[in-house]
């Protein structure tokens, strides 16, 4: 059975170790275009719509933002889809927040068992964790190859920062390249930002690598890089060295209309890195860009050349 995951911060390994198949919402086929209710985030609305489709699989929402929480409520109350709302702590410096994360992963396990999943033993969980770790390393290598290829191109190096893009929404990387820019850093969703570093366990080579459940939870909890965290310094600390190293000359901030969290970062990003920021906003759950936005993007890239 497939389980739809809507955030990079719910451990896929845990789902897979239960014998179920995690599937990121980003790769699902585009749904019909919907007019947006005023003030509603296109991504959150899309998740609610997805839950309402007859063939919908169980979905894991998170509490990362109010829009997502409310979309989860609507999905749970108004559709037959099984919904799990994962309480992602916004804070990250305290034992209480860490414990909350661990408890939520445990609770997720109970949800998966109710769906027919089987609680994994330590060896089973380790095996899935190592497999994911290898796959992530391969993805990182691919990303860095692509990055090297892009850096060799002559377009102005840009960072794409922001929230999730939906199937059916424009491929921003392609648009940027077509307009004469190069995406030197993809910090949107999905993208490099959601790619966890290597697991600590397998690298240490210890005979007893420890409790895989605790290591998995800590690994995720310690590497969440996202806009909803308070303080949100991790996001800035993660971006800073990468922007410098990749000689980024400007930021494209991708914001779903109705998303307060990303929108409010525009000025902070500008101030923190001294780089120009172009805010591109989606206005629909699907479909292309307004010609005006394409013009803005071209003009932005031209000004950076």
């Amino acid at each position: 059975m497939e389980i739809i995951v809507t955030s990079p911060w719910t451990p896929l390994e845990w789902i897979e170790a239960h014998g179920l198949e995690p599937r990121g919402v980003w790769g699902l086929p585009a749904c019909d275009r919907h007019a947006l209710a005023e003030g509603v985030c296109a991504f959150a609305q899309r998740l609610r719509a997805l839950a309402g489709t007859p063939s919908s699989q169980p979905m894991i929402f998170t509490t990362a933002c109010d829009q997502m929480r409310r979309a989860a409520d609507a999905a749970a109350e108004e559709t037959a889809t099984k919904v799990f709302l994962f309480n992602l702590p916004a804070t990250w410096k305290t034992p209480a927040a860490r414990r909350l994360y661990h408890q939520e992963v445990k609770r997720l396990g109970r949800f998966l068992e109710r769906l027919g999943g089987r609680a994994p033993d330590a060896a089973g969980l380790w095996s899935v964790m190592r497999d994911h770790d290898r796959r992530r390393q391969a993805e990182r290598a691919r990303a860095s190859l692509e990055k090297a290829g892009r850096t060799a191109s002559r377009g102005a190096p840009l960072a794409l920062v922001g929230g999730p893009a939906l199937p059916g929404q424009p491929n921003l990387c392609e648009l940027i390249e077509a307009a004469g820019g190069t995406v030197a850093l993809n910090a949107a969703e999905p993208g490099e930002r959601g790619l966890l570093p290597p697991l600590p366990g397998p690298q240490t080579g210890r005979a007893d690598p420890g409790d895989p459940f605790a290591i998995l939870c800590d690994h995720y909890f310690d590497h969440i890089i996202d806009v909803f965290q308070r303080p949100n310094s991790r996001l800035y600390e993660w971006l800073g060295p990468r922007l410098t190293e990749r000689r980024v000359r400007g930021l494209v901030l991708w914001v779903q209309v109705g998303c307060d969290l990303w929108r409010a970062e525009a000025m902070s990003l500008r101030e923190a890195f001294g780089l120009p920021v172009l805010v591109l906003e989606s206005t629909e759950t699907g479909g292309g860009f307004a010609a005006r936005d394409l013009n803005r993007l071209s003009a932005f890239i031209e000004s950076l050349r």
Partner: peptide
């Protein structure tokens, strides 16, 4: 307070 709070406030406090 953070976490289960509205996005408007969370975003503005972060700013």
């Amino acid at each position: 307070s953070a976490g289960a709070v509205c996005d408007d406030f969370s975003a503005i406090a972060a700013r």
